[in-house]
Design a binder for these strands. Structure first.
Length: 727
DNA sequence: GTGCCTCGAGTTCA
DNA sequence: CTCGAGGCAC
């Protein structure tokens, strides 16, 4: 092999850069074709030796001219030995999920909400597309100059897994496109047809391999194979229904764009229709539901999208879902089973959550044996406002209950059969002490959950807090997951976060060593210590989030970090706020607003998105002696890094406070606000000294006057659109 | 005070 | 994925 590599290198050494580039393009084309033939058509058109020779030559060119190497080059991609895992792909445009509608009334609300947002009268035309919602997994295919360069799963919507080699084995997915925009991201669903699923399972069973519970699992399992040769043997299908980044528009409407995707060679769903009214949408839904069993593949509802793409753009996105689309779900599959027991779990905040232990039963292709029961009111047959649910029927141990999987995932109890209730079944008595530590469990006025008051004395709370601390969005320590945390806690090696950073000092050398624990060796112990050491440098936002303070999740922590910039500034302000009389009042709701004017307190509550509940949680938690000592001990071990500036820093209105007033003619107020915020501006309701810009439409009154008095820049709607480049 | 919308905290199974 | 509740605009 070395000899052949040398020969390839020698040939390349004679090439000019331009020649090398041309030769690499040619090699890439031939390798792609060969991969295609091999993986997809299962009909190799090149011998292995020829294939390897081409690949070596391409690799040699890439080695000599590294900037010519394409990240998705076939030398790096298809045909390579299976990787240990999939690479990550950051989507150029986020992959969204959809809001759900469960009945016609929800769909009607959706349509009405869109008319309201766009300020369209009831009589104005508004068309939607309606298409079956395929029950598979979504995939984003990126084409550059007509060539498939990457295929990625949805992941968390921002980054997904790179499954390019596997996608190339799917017959419905073209490797090359003719006449496509230079950049085209096609989004769609990978799924398995019923007939293919049955055949695959028969084959798996015959080979003694495990069979799949349902087509969706089979499709997901097949796409995530590390060896593309395995995926090639799995009969996967694909429907395109959407797109991400584009260098040129696909059309003016959803229907046109999907037709264009079909013309480019992608399968699109034949049951996609354009509907001009709510009635047509619902009729199409009914029609699809009727044909559901005969389609030959699983669907779980119907997706409606606003047809006009200009309107889609105006409607824009909420945090994780577009405003212009909704999934109308079919009723969930139901199954009856017996409730064996009700267990109580204790969460990180001390919340006592009841869990139903069920006689295992198949629901929607999956065996379910646990289901959430939410809280004590839910068991008693009431919602949080005291209104009856399930006709007010309570749930008792021994009852026959009807189970479904909410969103096809989380098992829940829909109903209870009173006629089959066993004689002598007593109403469930919710514990008033913590089942883990025996402390009182109290339910605060207006709160739906009962909480253990044990704090860190409670082993369940302590462990859950530690799990939160090491979780992915917090410290994310490789090799220290929830299993490990439980084991270390049980042995007393880790009782609080700071102990993690003492682990090597305490258990690296000496009598009790990590490497002598069961399942641990020299190498794995070293890896863990290194992973922990790496996290001594930590972002301020991650640190604040990791502390697990009530009401302070990822977003609030990031907001706090961005505002304060350093741990010292943050903790100092919290300390000062805690000493001010306003915070000292035990009941927030009883506090008088005028007391909240003290500077540190209002600095905290003045942060956008941070209110009183968060401020109270911060001040009370972080000034509690034991908790504070633990936090101080932790922070002393860390190098806390300032958060990066906002991603929107480049936009002309980033960081500016904008106020809209008067009548807006080209957009509704909600649109204007959403657009401005997307560009990093803060939108306020009234003009004050902090306002940077007033956008005044016709009929502007007192706000415009006040802005003039304060000397604040004022522009009209067109001026605004020009400023943000939406002229 | 009401009504979004977003966030936080809880949840299952493969 | 869902519920409950916090935060904020109207």
């Amino acid at each position: 092999m070395a000899e052949e590599t040398e020969r390839a290198e020698a040939a390349v050494a004679a090439l000019s850069e331009a020649e090398a580039a041309a030769r690499l393009a040619e090699l890439t084309r031939r390798l792609d074709a060969a991969n295609r033939a091999y993986y997809q058509d299962d009909a190799p058109d090149l011998s292995d030796a020829d294939y390897d020779a081409l690949k070596r030559e391409a690799a040699a060119i890439e080695a000599r001219f590294p900037h010519l190497a394409h990240p998705d080059s076939p030398t790096a991609q298809v045909g390579a030995a299976p990787a240990e895992g999939f690479g990550k792909v950051t989507h150029a445009e986020r992959m969204l999920s959809l809001a759900n509608a469960f009945d016609a009334a929800d769909v009607a609300d959706f349509v009405a909400g869109i008319r309201r947002y766009l300020n369209l009268p009831d009589a104005a035309p508004l068309a939607f597309t309606a298409e079956p919602k395929i029950d598979g997994l979504s995939l984003s295919l990126r084409y550059e100059d007509g060539r498939l360069v990457s295929a990625a799963t949805r992941g968390d919507g921002v980054t997904g897994e790179n499954v390019t080699a596997n996608a190339l084995t799917i017959k419905d997915i073209p490797a090359r496109l003719e006449g496509a925009p230079a950049v085209l991201e096609v989004r769609g669903e990978v799924y398995m047809r019923h007939a293919d699923f049955a055949a695959l399972n028969a084959q798996q069973a015959a080979a003694g391999d495990k069979t799949f519970a349902n087509p969706r699992n089979a499709a997901a399992g097949s796409l995530r194979q590390l060896d593309p040769a395995v995926t090639r043997a799995r009969p996967l299908s694909f429907f395109a229904y959407s797109w991400g980044e584009l260098s040129a528009p696909l059309g003016r409407s959803q229907a046109e764009a999907v037709a264009r995707l079909a013309a480019l060679g992608f399968p699109t769903n034949p049951l996609t229709r354009r509907c001009d009214s709510l009635d047509e949408m619902l009729a199409h839904y009914a029609g699809i539901e009727e044909r559901r069993a005969t389609l030959g593949y699983d669907i779980d509802g119907v997706v409606y999208k606003v047809d006009d793409l200009a309107l889609q753009a105006r409607l824009g996105l909420r945090s994780t879902t577009p405003r212009w689309a909704i999934a109308h779900k079919f009723p969930a599959e139901l199954a009856w089973t017996r409730l064996e027991a009700i267990d109580i779990q204790v969460g990180r905040t001390g919340a006592l959550s009841p869990v139903a232990r069920l006689t295992p039963v198949t629901v929607g292709g999956v065996v379910v044996s646990n289901a959430t029961l939410h809280n004590e009111d839910y068991i008693a047959g009431r919602d949080s406002r005291g209104q009856p649910i399930r006709g007010g029927r309570d749930i008792r141990v021994g009852d026959w209950v009807q189970v479904y999987r909410a969103g096809d995932v989380i098992p829940k109890i829909a109903d209870v059969d009173l006629s089959r209730r066993p004689e002598g079944a007593a109403p469930f008595v919710f514990p008033v002490t913590c089942p883990e530590c025996g402390s009182d469990a109290v339910r605060e006025e207006g709160d739906a959950v009962r909480r253990c008051t044990g704090g860190l004395i409670c082993p369940a709370q302590a462990v859950e807090k530690l799990k939160h601390f090491v979780s992915r969005q917090a410290f994310d320590i490789e090799g220290l997951g929830s299993k490990q945390v439980e084991a270390f806690y049980a042995d007393g090696w880790i009782r609080e976060p700071a102990d993690i950073f003492d682990l090597e000092r305490n258990y690296g050398t000496g009598l009790r060593q990590l490497k002598n624990r069961e399942g641990w060796g020299e190498k794995s112990a070293r890896n863990l210590f290194d992973a922990i050491a790496e996290r001594r440098r930590i972002g301020l936002g991650r640190l604040i989030f990791a502390l697990g303070i009530r009401h302070v999740g990822e977003v609030a922590a990031a907001d706090l970090a961005r505002h304060f910039g350093s741990w010292a500034a943050f903790i100092d302000t919290v300390d000062r706020a805690a000493q001010e009389p306003a915070a000292a009042a035990p009941d927030v709701r009883a506090r008088k607003p005028h007391l909240a004017d003290s500077p540190a307190w209002s600095e905290i509550t003045g942060i956008d998105g941070i209110g009183e509940a968060v401020a109270v949680a911060l001040t009370t938690t972080l000034t509690q002696d034991a908790e504070r000592a633990s936090v101080d001990r932790l922070v002393a071990q860390l190098q806390v890094e300032a958060p990066p500036a906002r991603a929107t820093a480049g936009s002309p209105v980033a960081g500016k406070t904008v106020v809209f007033t008067g009548t807006l003619e080209k957009m509704t107020r909600a649109e204007a606000k959403a657009r401005a915020e997307a560009l990093g501006a803060k939108v306020a309701g009234s003009v004050s000294a902090k306002t940077d810009l007033l956008v005044a439409g016709p009929g502007a009154g007192s706000k415009a006057k006040k802005a003039a008095e304060l000397g604040i820049e004022t522009i009209d709607e067109d001026g605004w659109l020009a400023l943000i480049g939406d002229g």
